[in-house]
């Protein structure tokens, strides 16, 4: 956290005000993020609890009134990588060499999933989209959670994930294509034909 080297000397009351007023309101988003990362409710609970304890411990490196949600999400993401990912031994499948290539490739306008239509989405009651999201590799899942579920801006995502904005964009692009592939598989299995719009 290069921009947070400055330490703030908060009084006990200020600490509690920040914690209750700026940190705790994000508990549901944090829990959802934790759950989407770990795919387990108990792990999510532990992860969120852990994150909030760390947030309190390092509260003096948080500048009151700034982006608490992004700050908390970054701690949670780091805790997940350091504590949980190791445990599950899940290797990252994101090919970091490849992330920038879509900007240069000739076929960027090729429609990857021409068979996926807006109509076929209408009958997805929630499980399908949720399962499709959960099936993505965690790095791809994460950018979709941050962008589409939580509405973070590219710049905030870059800070949360410690990656350049260009990588945020390209990873998001690939993540969405993978998600569409999954969704079109579901759509196909639900019996949708290639009907005209």
């Amino acid at each position: 956290m290069e921009e947070t080297i400055t330490r703030n000397n908060y009084s006990e009351k200020e600490k509690n005000d920040i914690f209750n007023g700026e940190f705790l309101p994000h508990i549901n988003s944090m829990y959802n993020f934790g759950f989407r990362l770990t795919l387990d409710r108990d792990d999510a609970k532990d992860l969120v609890q852990d994150t909030y304890l760390k947030a309190y411990r390092f509260i003096e490196s948080f500048q009151k009134g700034t982006n608490a949600k992004a700050w908390l999400f970054r701690i949670l993401k780091n805790s997940f990588i350091n504590d949980y990912r190791k445990k599950t031994k899940e290797p990252s499948k994101v090919d970091y060499q490849e992330v920038e290539t879509y900007y240069n490739s000739e076929d960027v306008n090729r429609q990857i999933t021409p068979d996926l239509r807006v109509e076929s989405l209408k009958d997805m009651i929630g499980d399908e989209i949720s399962n499709a999201l959960n099936s993505l590799d965690v790095d791809f899942r994460t950018v979709i959670i941050l962008c589409d579920l939580e509405g973070f801006k590219y710049e905030e995502m870059a800070k949360i994930l410690d990656i350049p904005i260009g990588t945020v964009r390209s990873r998001l692009h690939r993540a969405r294509n993978l998600l569409k592939e999954k969704l079109s598989e579901y759509a196909k299995s639900m019996g949708y034909k290639n009907t005209e719009l």
């Binding site: 549901n28 959802n32 989405l121 989209i129 999201l133 589409d148 579920l149």
Partner: peptide
């Protein structure tokens, strides 16, 4: 299509309250 997916994600995948 992209907007529909984005909306669907937002409405269907944010429901797990702490």
């Amino acid at each position: 299509l992209d907007m529909a997916i984005k909306r669907l994600l937002k409405t269907k995948c944010c429901g797990s309250d702490a």
